[in-house]
Design a protein around this nucleic acid. Structure first.
Lengths: 248, 248
DNA sequence: GGTTAGTTGTGTACAATTTACACGAAGATA
DNA sequence: TATCTTCGTGTAAATTGTACACAACTAACC
């Protein structure tokens, strides 16, 4: 953790996505506030993982530090997707109460920079056990109570993710190093909310020379084990073509 | 102009693109600083069009106000593309001198939110005459002196523009209401730095039902006048398909 | 050891889209 | 009336996308 002064009116918020081989999830922090004297529960809802930046910290560094703190991991895929600066970001009375207790009454408009984080579930689940941080299925978010404008930020992140995933090979960040083609297909289906034909999907992937078949097979599954594959960013960078989809 | 207090550590910068039917241009402001006593020229370079936000102003509003102030126009296409918060954004001695004179010595790191603006040249050129604001060809920017990290911001904007233009019909914002297919083609060629086959380009456009042929023809050209077309966002919104380019 | 349950991995025919390519017609000018 | 410049058009071949079904493999169970 960094020890210098925070910048009171600027923060970063990370929208952390994960994939459990079935559905897409997002990491949220439970926000709970009890009155100091009466012990009465004043607030209970969820927030994205974010914090103010520090005076001597870049935006990217701030986002990285949040994730490191949260998951214990470094080198997580992290990409800015938007900044939010609406005057009414502090949404309701709930948030005002929160700021009064937690933020020393500071209620100026805070500009927050949103980061998209993609993590490999298999590497982090243990670290989360003892914190008030949990995975929530992306399609359950709509019905949840969320702090500030975090629901809005979340949906912007999801849109950005769906857009990027069609154009860049970032989805692999959500899978373990070795994965099967069925897992890859299910991931894309979860991300985009569609379904693909198995044979056509595989034909397509086999043309991507940066998705490399290994000589290994899946282990510990109660059925025919599938071949494992590896994504190579190096190969990708050397073979990208730069397709255009909207015009020509 | 707005009269309230500025937020000292947050600004917006607009990267304003225009098209003169031959090449893509960007709007830059000449920054010139003379020593008050000696009259000696301390700084001369260029900046993007930007300013601090005001306490009672949204980010989007701030960007809009800058453009209105600059061009006299409202309703300009404007879209956030990134936030910049590197600690070394104030690049060199030049910028420190500038901040000392202009910004009352305030030299804290400023986080700036970058906006992409696309404008129809034919509507604004007159408004710019008497200001130190000028169009510069995009491919000349590399050799220019620019303030702060504005060259970096400019290139990020250009990348974002090239990316978006392939996926959304925003290029039309750079053309007048009525345009010819040759102008549209030259625009895409200028934007993407490629060239297209005329017949194939037209075949493609003819499938876009939101590019609508008019019964009008070009006037005042020393050759066969071309048919004029119109872009209809309304038709676009009703006929979009949502193609995928990277996978399936 | 044989059966069951669940998942893997493969090919082909047809449709749609993309690409490459050249010339006569229209209008302005001298 | 000749010349200049840009406009506007079609077809054939190659590539890419789509729809569709079944046998083989492994683990687990009896």
């Amino acid at each position: 953790m960094i020890s210098h002064n925070i910048v009171p009116n600027i923060s970063v918020d990370c929208v952390v996505f994960g994939f459990d081989f079935k559905k897409l999830n997002v990491l949220l922090v439970e926000r709970e506030l009890k009155d100091e004297e009466s012990g009465k529960l004043l607030i209970k809802d969820h927030t994205l993982t974010g914090y103010h930046i520090f005076e001597d910290e870049d935006l990217d560094t701030a986002a990285n530090n949040i994730l490191k703190n949260l998951t214990g991991l470094d080198n997580i895929f992290l990409e800015q997707f938007a900044a939010f600066g609406q005057l009414d970001r502090v949404a309701g009375d709930k948030d005002k109460v929160w700021l009064k207790y937690i933020n020393k009454g500071f209620a100026e408009r805070i500009v927050t920079v949103g980061y998209l984080a993609l993590i490999d579930n298999t590497k982090v689940t243990l670290h989360l056990k003892d914190k008030n941080v949990q995975w929530f299925p992306v399609n359950k978010i709509n019905g949840m109570e969320m702090a500030f404008d975090h629901k809005h930020i979340f949906y912007k992140a999801l849109e950005a993710l769906q857009r990027k995933v069609k154009v860049e090979p970032i989805a692999f960040e959500l899978l373990p190093d070795y994965f099967t083609l069925s897992q890859l297909q299910k991931l894309y289906e979860a991300l985009l909310g569609t379904s693909f034909d198995k044979r056509n999907f595989r034909k397509k992937v086999s043309q991507m020379h940066y998705v490399i078949p290994l000589k290994k097979k899946q282990k510990g599954v109660p059925h025919k084990p599938a071949q494992l594959y590896l994504f190579s960013r190096e190969v990708y960078d050397k073979t990208r073509k730069g397709k255009i989809s909207f015009i020509i």
